[in-house]
């Protein structure tokens, strides 16, 4: 009897948990896709395909930004689909095309495999706008592509580092997941500077965007007793992990201290570290793409084509000596 009660309780807890999750998802969808009934024909229908907002703080900010922009009040009827898998995204795209959306906004999980579905879109008269990520498809299949230039992000950061005029550069280079666009762009600039300026790389390892792994990598360098004066981490989380290892070993870091700490992505907490001068530099990877997308849609609605097909967003690099509290609020994600 006891067993049965327990089993029932557990099953109940399980179901409760499931409905709770489902409920949350449903309510967010409901908010995003208002009912057809009262809206009338004036709303522009957009289908937005994005990566899972849980993926990172960057993606969460990106999703929030899009949700805030494509509202009924702004004249849009938006539906959202999330997946980290390409095939699921393609299925969602097909569904949106069948639903007769006017615009398909796409942040593709993978660069390949989009040709046929985009051709379907073209045949159905759906305009496609890529954001955040590019795909391997004929440019005639989409109207615009709004992207970050990761190479430029890396170059901005490395140029800033060059501008510090250190007498020597001993760099711990902590990389993201190998092969990702962000890793390639941000590593490329460092590798180029190592070749041209004779910088010394103490260690160059991937921590796979993981703070703990970064902490262990830096810990290992400290344990070995190798001197270093720059930490170039390809995202904020890894920079945080590295700093935790520095704190443990009483190595000072930040403005005017022994070690320069550099991160990317401009998380709010990271910019606060800059404001407190514990870190030195943070490079932006702009998640606020909605304004660019709205501009493109406005142009297309007026019957024109955007001036350039590939639109590269402005991205900043913040220096701890010049950052302001306003910057933290405006650019922190």
């Amino acid at each position: 009897m006891k067993k049965k009660v327990l089993a029932v309780l557990l099953a109940a807890a399980m179901v409760l948990g499931l409905t709770a999750c489902g409920g949350a998802a449903a309510s967010s969808d409901g908010a995003a896709a208002p009912a057809d009934g009262g809206a009338g024909g004036k709303l522009i229908k957009v289908g937005i395909i994005n990566n899972d907002p849980n993926e990172s703080g960057y993606r969460t900010a990106n999703d929030k930004d899009l949700k805030a922009a494509f509202t009924e009040a702004n004249g849009f009827q938006a539906s959202f689909a999330y997946s980290l898998k390409n095939d699921e995204q393609i299925t969602a795209a097909q569904k949106f095309i069948q639903d007769g959306v006017d615009y398909l906004l796409l942040s593709a999980a993978d660069t390949a495999g989009w040709d046929s579905v985009l051709k379907d879109a073209q045949a159905a008269g759906v305009r496609v706008i890529l954001f955040d990520r590019t795909i391997d498809a004929d440019p005639s299949l989409y109207s615009a592509s709004i992207v970050s230039d990761m190479e430029k992000e890396g170059e901005t950061a490395v140029n800033w580092l060059k501008g510090q005029n250190l007498s020597e550069y001993n760099i711990i280079h902590i990389q993201g997941v190998m092969g990702s666009a962000a890793q390639k762009g941000r590593s490329g600039a460092v590798d180029a500077a190592v070749a041209s300026d004779g910088w010394n790389i103490v260690t160059q390892q991937t921590a796979e965007w993981n703070a703990e792994k970064a902490q262990q990598i830096v810990q290992s360098v400290i344990d070995a007793g190798t001197p270093f004066n720059v930490i170039y981490a390809e995202n904020d989380d890894m920079a945080k992990g590295a700093v935790a290892a520095l704190d443990k070993a009483n190595i000072s870091h930040g403005v005017g201290k022994d070690v320069i700490v550099m991160g990317f992505d401009c998380n709010k907490w990271a910019l606060e570290e800059l404001l407190n001068q514990n870190w030195n530099y943070d490079g932006q990877c702009n998640p606020f793409q909605s304004q660019y997308i709205l501009d493109v849609i406005k142009t297309l609605e007026s019957g024109q084509e955007p001036a350039q097909k590939t639109i590269i967003m402005d991205e900043k690099g913040f220096d701890a000596t010049t950052i302001t509290a306003d910057d933290v609020n405006n650019y922190g994600i």
Partner: peptide, 13 residues
């Protein structure tokens, strides 16, 4: 506690 924060997709991966 190690980092006083969490990253859901990579913690204890």
């Amino acid at each position: 506690s190690r980092l006083s924060t969490i990253n859901y997709s990579v913690i204890a991966k």
